[in-house]
Design a binder for these strands. Sequence first.
RNA 1: GGCGGGGUAGCCAAGUGGUAAGGCAGGGCUCUGCAAAAGCCUUAUGCGUCGGUUCGAUUCCGACCCUCGCCUCCA
Length: 471
Amino acid sequence: MGLKLFNTLTRSVEEFVPRDPQGKKAGMYCCGPTIHNFAHIGNFRTFVFADLLRRYLEFKGYEVQHVMNITDVEDKIIAGVRGSGLALPEFTHRYETAFFEDFAALGCLSPHQTPHATEHIPQIIALTEKLVAQGFAYQTADGSVYFSIQAYRDRGRHYGQLLNLNFEAMRVGERVSADEYDKESVADFALWKARVPEDGSVYWPSPWGEGRPGWHIECSAMSMKLLGPSFDLHLGGEDLIFPHHEDEIAQSEGAGLQQPGERFVKYWLHVAHLLVEGNKMSKSLGNFFTLRDLLAKGFSGREIRYVLISAAYRSSFNFTLENLTGARTALARLDECLSKLRVLAAYKTSEADSRLLAEFSAAMDDDLNVSGAWGCIFNWVRETNKLLAANQVSALQAAAGLAAWQRIENVLGISERAKTEVPTEFLTLLEQRQAARKAKDYKRADAIRQELKAAGWVIEDTPQGPRLKRI
RNA sequence: GGCGGGGUAGCCAAGUGGUAAGGCAGGGCUCUGCAAAAGCCUUAUGCGUCGGUUCGAUUCCGACCCUCGCCUCCA
């Protein structure tokens, strides 16, 4: 069965067929972070989803080229640079380092390439020149270059592919005052922004004078450089649909680099926003969380990842601390089951349990229905536990379950909690407690139990005898 | 004003024209010297409201209510 994805371009669920004639390679671009601050949990929903999609494509046997850009020059960054007194690279470096720490904490695989806008100024200028030459862009008196939506539409090009635009009813100028721009139409967007005093030392030379790139152009320049003028998948948060992605299409297809009949991007995927505690994240409501905030509260990256990939990416969903707490219990149950299977399998290997894999991939094939996938997994856990309790699992069956789980885990990226070896002194205490229990000295036994608990180890009295587990 | 998503148990969340997955929390039980841990069982006659189509609707249609997003540099 094939993977189906919802394509914003057609507003429908489509079979995923990569452009590669061999059907093997898949190019994927995800709009990455703007590194002017610590990324918040909403930002990470998109990046974790991109990671999940990349992993699932690999599960399906595709050879994925995953590109995520780093926006390291933009209005807010320049404002930050000005406020910090640092040079641009020093300022962005801190947040980029922090970003990748967070990214790794969430179990995301490194994208194959992470291009920076400031390292692609020549490509950005070249693309802008191409658009000027095509008559789709014009220079203003101050030395900025804008993309003309009017010129684009006049040549029969379609602006408004990802959403229905009603040019007459648009409330232009309501949120951004029109007079702060020196451009032909408020709808036009900047490809190149002329240097202004506030930019400080952030500027580059260009055919139009000193300045810096507009925001949308970097994604066009870098994605086409690394993945070619046409590629398979482009993802981002739903707020990027307009204008960012629409503008990317206009720029990239306006430059005319695609083969006849080819689009810039075949599948556009958009991740819905997160609600936190039932509300839009905002600092004043106290529900604005960076990843660091949550880690500081004692939650682990794996628990946060679990919550982020517990609901379908196309629906906005409510991220709550209650669910984050619940994630720990749910994952512990999964770990417990796997660890029992591991003991049983005792290094035997086997073909993967095909039923579990089939159920998992059927759910994932359906536009990455992770909720359905988790449903299969927990049904399997319950059934497995029942069989385990009845001593009805053979070593071979255990190995088959583990083999299937390994493949699923490669997709979900929920690695198991690292095992900690029990210090021998605690094992000794455990033996002493057993001796005390045998002698019916329960006072002494309970004291040892307390002592171990204080040290962070809980005793599990199983029918096979006691064992220690890290709290 | 325009365009587009949503409203399913205490919380989160799948799903289907034929009688509601899964997770957490709650309750019960097994195990235990007692606990804990672990495990099992259980928890929506109901899917925003009101109509309509239908043998049958949570699922399709209509109206309404509520909510979220975008409408020119916000994941």
